[in-house]
Design a protein around this nucleic acid. Structure first.
Lengths: 340, 340
DNA sequence: GATATGATTGCAAGCGCTTGCAAAATAATT
DNA sequence: AATTATTTTGCAAGCGCTTGCAATCATATC
C-alpha cells in the first residue's frame, strides 16, 4: 500500500498527494485517475473521485504541463478584430476546445502602436501551446520555422494551407466566388468589380481568382479589381466613394467580406452618393450577422462557420496525440444566398 | 563559478541549463536574467541574453508557472458572442495583456448544447489563470466562492462590481441612460420605451434604472419596458414587431445595446412594418461599429471602450503582484452621440 | 590596508504532476 | 494446484524553473 507522506499544505492548494493520503493510494494512482488512461480499477477510481471532490481537488495544470509536455492550450492567432465573423471563430473555437478539455489562448497578431519585441512574445507563447489555429492572419516565415522546429501542430482555418506540413480546414473560396460571378451575370450586371481586403491574404487571392476567372469566361473581360488593404468599415466606404468617381462606375460588386460589402453599399447608397438612379448589386462573403441585417438585403456567400471552426479545432486536437499524421485538407462547400 | 552539469537535450528544447553551461553561470542567474528582477550585473545579463538568443532559448512557461505559482495568464470570461462590441474586448484585452507579457485565455461561459461538467472545467481553468476579467456575463456564486478561496483577483469590466472584493472598471451607465432620456424628450418623443437584453444582467439594470428614473422626472410617467432575454438580432427584431402590435406603439426607444437598436430599427422600418408614417427614434448603447453604419444613422451612447478595457486589464495585472490592494472602482464617462 | 556595505552569484530544495519499469494482486489456463 | 497472462498499483526519477539563504566579489569608508 501507499506510504503516507507528510502533507504540507504549502499554499492552501489541495494536491494529488493530499487526495492520495486520504484515500490510501499513491499519487501515481491519483494522477492516472485524472488523466483518464483507464489503468485504474473502477473501485479505486470511485474512491479517489469521491475524496477529490470532497477536498475540492483538481490537478495543477502547470505541473501537469511540465511533466507531460502538453499544456492542453491551443493558440488562436487572429489579426482581424473588425469583422463580426471573427466572433464566430472565437465562439466556436473556445466552445469546442472546452468540450475537449482544452482551452483557447488569444494570440493577437495585429501590430498596433508598433509593439515591442513581439518576436519574443511569440516565442514564449509558442512553447506554451500544444498547437496553433491560424486564421486568415499573417503567418510569418519565422513563425513557421519555429513551429517546425518545435514540432508544433498547426491548422489553418478558412483558407488553403500554403505550407506542406499544415492541415487546413476551409470552404471552397474559388467556387463561392464563381457563384457570385454567375449571380451578377444573371442579374444583368454590365460592369462587375471585385473588392478585396488584404491583397496578400490567401483568402483574398482565392476569392479573387475564382471570381476573375469566371467573369472572364462569362464576359470575356476582366473585372475591375480593388483592394482596401484592411477589412474595415471606413476603408470600404472610402473605396466605395472612389468607385463613384470612375467615368463608368461598376454596377455589380463582389466584396470578399460582408463588412466591406456593407460599407461599400453604404457609400453607394443614394443618400451618400447623391446618385438616386444608381443602385448596383453588392455581394458579400461569409453570411455573417451583417448580411442578415434586413436593411441591406445583402447577398452573401454562406459558409458553414460553426462546422468549419469546430472541425478545425477538433482536428487540431486530434492530431496532437498521434505521431506524424499527415496534413489534411478538409473542405466545406459554400453557397451564395440572397433574398431575391 | 557555476558547476557545469550534464546537458541532456531530452526533448530538443533549449533549457536554462543549456544557456547556463554555455555562458558559464548557474541556472539561477539565467533564471533571474529572464524574470527581470534586476539582480544580475549588466555584463552577465548581456552575455546571457546573447547566448540565449543564439541558442533560441525562451523560458518554459509551465515550469515557471509551477515554480513561481504564476501563470501569466488571465482568463477572459465571455458569454456574448453576438455583439460586435465583444470584438473590442477581445482585441484590447489581448493586446494589453501581451504588452505586459501576459496572455488572455478565452473562457466561454455560454452554455450551448447543455455542456457537460462545466463545473469542473471552470475549476481546472481557474487555478490555471492568475486573474479573471469578467464581462457582463453571468458569474455564478459558486465561481465567486472559488475565486475567494483560491485568492484569485477578479476585475469586472463594463459594469459595477456587485461583490465587495472585486474591482470594476466601467462607464457611468446610469448617466448615459439618462442622457438618452433627455435626448428623446428633446426630440419630442411622446411614448418612450426601454428595451434591454438580459434582464438579470447588471448592465441592463443600471441602464434601465438610469433611463426610467429620468423619464419619470421628465414625463411623470413610466416608460414601456421590455427585455429580449438575449442580445441577438433575431430576438431584437421580434421584440420590435411585437411593439408594433401595441395599440399605441412607442415613438422613441432606448435599447441597451447597438445590436438590439439595429434589429429593432429594422423591424420598425417602413419596409418591414408597413407603416410608412411611423419612424420612431431609436438609440443604442456602445457606439460600436454597428452604430457607425451610415444607413442607420443610429444615435448611441459612446463609451471609451479601448481605454476602459486596457485599464481593466492593466489594473488586473497590477493587482496580481501586490498583497491586498483594496478593490477599486474606476469609472469612465459616456456621452450620447448622434448625427443630428 | 583593514573592515564594512552592498551588489552578484550559486546551492539546493522544492513546485505538483507524469511515466517507465517492476512488483503485487488478480484472473485465466492447463 | 501450479503456472502464465492480465490487470492494478507503487517507486523513483524527473519535467525546467524559482527562491531563501549563504557565500563571494566589488566597492566604499575610516
Amino acid at each position: 500500500m501507499a506510504q503516507e507522506r507528510s502533507t504540507r499544505k504549502t499554499h492552501g492548494m489541495v494536491t494529488a498527494q493530499d487526495v492520495a493520503n486520504e484515500v490510501g493510494v499513491s499519487v501515481t494512482t491519483v494522477s492516472r485517475c485524472f488523466s483518464e488512461t483507464g489503468l485504474v480499477s473502477e473501485k479505486t477510481q470511485e474512491r479517489i473521485l469521491a475524496v477529490a471532490n470532497k477536498l475540492g481537488y483538481s490537478p495543477n495544470i502547470a505541473a501537469r504541463a511540465l511533466a507531460s509536455r502538453r499544456s492542453r492550450l491551443i493558440g488562436l492567432m487572429v489579426d482581424d478584430f473588425n469583422d463580426p465573423e471573427s466572433l464566430d471563430l472565437f465562439r466556436f473555437v473556445s466552445s469546442e476546445a472546452q468540450r475537449r478539455n482544452f482551452h483557447a489562448i488569444l494570440l493577437n497578431t495585429y501590430r498596433e502602436r508598433s509593439e515591442t519585441s513581439s518576436g519574443s512574445i511569440e516565442a514564449g507563447m509558442l512553447q506554451q501551446v500544444d498547437g496553433l489555429l491560424v486564421t486568415a492572419s499573417y503567418f510569418s516565415d519565422e513563425m513557421i520555422a519555429r513551429c517546425a522546429r518545435q514540432d508544433k501542430r498547426v491548422v489553418i482555418v478558412g483558407r488553403k494551407s500554403g505550407h506542406p506540413d499544415f492541415s487546413s480546414v476551409y470552404c471552397d473560396n474559388e467556387d463561392g466566388a464563381a457563384q457570385v460571378a454567375d449571380f451578377l451575370f444573371d442579374q444583368g450586371v454590365q460592369r462587375p468589380a471585385f473588392v478585396g481586403a488584404n491583397p496578400k491574404a490567401t483568402v483574398t487571392l482565392e476569392r479573387r481568382s475564382g471570381f476573375v476567372h469566371r467573369i472572364e469566361q462569362l464576359y470575356g473581360i476582366q473585372p475591375i479589381v480593388r483592394e482596401t488593404g484592411i477589412n474595415d468599415y471606413n476603408k470600404g466606404f472610402e473605396v466605395g466613394r472612389e468607385m463613384l468617381t470612375l467615368p463608368k462606375p461598376p454596377d455589380g460588386y463582389f466584396c470578399t467580406t460582408d463588412l466591406l460589402a456593407i460599407s461599400l453599399s453604404d457609400a453607394l447608397h443614394p443618400e451618400n452618393s447623391g446618385l438616386s438612379d444608381h443602385s448596383p448589386h453588392v455581394v458579400g462573403f461569409g453570411n455573417s450577422m451583417l448580411s442578415r441585417l434586413t436593411r441591406y438585403r445583402l447577398a452573401s456567400v454562406a459558409l458553414p462557420m460553426e462546422d468549419m471552426v469546430r472541425t478545425a479545432t477538433s482536428h487540431l486536437i486530434d492530431t496532437l496525440g498521434d505521431a506524424m499524421t499527415g496534413p489534411e485538407r478538409i473542405v466545406f462547400p459554400c453557397k451564395l444566398t440572397h433574398g431575391v
